[in-house]
C-alpha cells in the first residue's frame, strides 16, 4: 500500500534511467556528480513515500522541499539502497558505498570507550574520523564536519568517504541547529540521529538478503 514505490511504472522507468545515469557517472569516476545524483535519488524516494503514505505532495510540506529526516531515512526502500550501493561498490572496488560506511559504523560501535551520550564538540563520533568527514585541525580532530565542497572526490579519499551528500544536505535551519553556518552544506557538528537512522536502515535492509 505504501512503501512500494517501484509499483508505479513511471517512477520505475525514471528510476531505471537514473540508475543507468549513475552507473555512467561512476564509470567515468565523476564522484561528485554521482554523489549529487545519489542524494537526489534518495530524496525522490522520500517524495514518493510521502505521497504514497500520507497523500501529501511535497508542496504542502512546510519547507517546500523534503529532506532526509531520521523518519525518512528509516523508510527508504531497501531495493533502492541496494541498487545504489551496488553501483558505488562496483565502480570503486568496494572503497565507496553504503556498505563500506555501514561496515565502518558497525566497527565503531564495537569501540568500548565511545559513549554517544558523552559526545560533544571535542569527542566526535569515531565514524566521522574514519571516513574523513571531519574538519582537519592540527593537533586532534574535533566534532566539526568539513564543508561539502572540501570533501575529496577521488579514490585517494578514506574508505567510506562517499557518498556523503545524503548526510550534508539538510535544511538551513537544521544546519544552524547543528552549529553550522546556515549553509546546509556542512561545516557543522554532525547529527548522530540521522547517521544512525541511515546505518540502522542499511543494516535492516541487509536482513532481506541483498537485492530482491
Amino acid at each position: 500500500m505504501l512503501s512500494n514505490t517501484s509499483n508505479s511504472p513511471a517512477f520505475h522507468s525514471s528510476l531505471e534511467e537514473s540508475l543507468g545515469e549513475l552507473s555512467l557517472l561512476l564509470d567515468e569516476q565523476d564522484w561528485e556528480e554521482a554523489d549529487r545524483l545519489t542524494a537526489d535519488l534518495l530524496l525522490d524516494a522520500v517524495v514518493q513515500n510521502y505521497s504514497g503514505e500520507t497523500g501529501l505532495s511535497p508542496e504542502t510540506e512546510p519547507h517546500h522541499r523534503p529532506h532526509l529526516t531520521t523518519e525518512a531515512l528509516a523508510a527508504l526502500p531497501c531495493q533502492l539502497l541496494h541498487a545504489i550501493d551496488d553501483r558505488w561498490q562496483r565502480a570503486s572496488g568496494g572503497h565507496f558505498g553504503f556498505s563500506a560506511q555501514l561496515q565502518i559504523y558497525a566497527a565503531t560501535l564495537e569501540t568500548i570507550d565511545f559513549d554517544p551520550a558523552l559526545r560533544n564538540w571535542s569527542t566526535p563520533h569515531p565514524f566521522f574520523e574514519e571516513v574523513g568527514w571531519l574538519m582537519l585541525f592540527p593537533l586532534r580532530p574535533i566534532g566539526f564536519l568539513r564543508f561539502y565542497t572540501w570533501l575529496d572526490f577521488d579514490l585517494e579519499a578514506p574508505r567510506g568517504h562517499l557518498p556523503a551528500l545524503w548526510y550534508w544536505r539538510v535544511p538551513r535551519i537544521a544546519s544552524l541547529q547543528m552549529g553550522g553556518l546556515l549553509t546546509g552544506q556542512g561545516g557543522a557538528f554532525g547529527d548522530l540521529a540521522r547517521l544512525d537512522a541511515m546505518m540502522l536502515r542499511l543494516s535492516r535492509c541487509h536482513h532481506l538478503g541483498g537485492r530482491r
Partner: peptide, 8 residues
Amino acid sequence: CCPSLSDR
C-alpha cells in the same frame, strides 16, 4: 519502532 537508536 525506532527510526534511529544510537543517540537515544
